[in-house]
């Protein structure tokens, strides 16, 4: 079994950033920027999908029932404390020995675990923080538990729930490039290759690509959140969001 590839096919050392980015070959083909971007976005999408499906419904139901407050808070704290890079690295040999290879399970699992706490906490805080008067009113007019959750608690909590999802997403997209150092590729590969080849162009260009993507994702999610949340609710809960969900 061989070690992790830490360097790919070398670029000429004296290539400028401009030349590298303007060369069509940098973008397409094997190891190109576009396939790497697709690679990164695929992993990002999968992680967010799975983490959201795991965290949000669980937190919403538990908060609705008023259960698991302490254990949830404890798990969130532990989850936030565990270093993602270390966890992913720890999973690499386990995955290899089980025959699943370097990718995608170790990085996928580590990123998913990283994404859970903010979403869980945001949803739990949001649902349990919904004005008791609104919930009582819903019960008083005869809504059953599940209907109360769906028609009253979730809509009112939506803004903070989405903030939690957004915080997770920003963390995931910003952390994803570590996979290039864990035997995978993705958009982080250029930084890795640049460091390996002492090629400043690749380092700076790769870092810029990764940073721009993270920034775009953050902006896009902020815009999406504005679009999704009704204005009344947004105003109502703008204050709570900043305080209860860790950034």
């Amino acid at each position: 079994m061989s070690g992790v590839r830490l360097a790919q096919a070398a670029l000429p050392r004296d290539i400028t950033l401009r030349e590298w980015l303007l060369d069509g070959a940098s973008w397409t083909g094997e190891g190109g920027i576009l396939p790497s971007l697709v690679d990164t976005l695929t992993l990002f999408g999968a992680v967010m999908l799975v983490a959201t499906l795991l965290a949000v419904p669980t937190a919403a139901v538990l908060a609705h029932l008023g259960r698991a407050r302490l254990i949830g808070a404890w798990l969130v704290n532990v989850g936030r404390a565990v270093p993602t890079f270390a966890l992913a690295a720890l999973l690499v040999p386990i995955s290899l020995r089980a025959g699943y290879g370097f990718e995608p399970w170790p990085i996928f699992t580590a990123l998913t675990l990283m994404a859970l706490p903010p979403m869980y906490l945001g949803t739990y805080t949001a649902v349990s923080g919904v004005d008791r008067a609104a919930v009582d009113a819903a019960r008083a007019v005869g809504l059953r538990g599940r209907a109360v959750l769906r028609q009253v608690e979730l809509p009112l909590a939506l803004s903070i729930i989405l903030t939690g999802v957004r915080v997770s997403a920003v963390q995931v997209i910003a952390t994803e490039p570590i996979r290039a150092f864990l035997g995978g590729d993705g958009l982080g590969r250029y930084v890795r290759d640049g460091l390996g080849q002492r090629n400043t162009t690749l380092i700076v260009g790769g870092a810029a690509l990764v940073a721009v993507l993270a920034g775009l994702v953050a902006l896009a999610l902020a815009a999406l959140q504005r679009l999704l949340v009704p204005r009344g609710v947004r105003r109502l809960q703008a204050v709570g969001a900043s305080r209860d969900v860790p950034a």
Partner: peptide, 14 residues
């Protein structure tokens, strides 16, 4: 904080 860690570490290397 939104700058990916890999990028920020790498950017200073030059």
């Amino acid at each position: 904080y939104t700058i990916p860690s890999v990028a920020l570490f790498a950017l200073l290397v030059p």
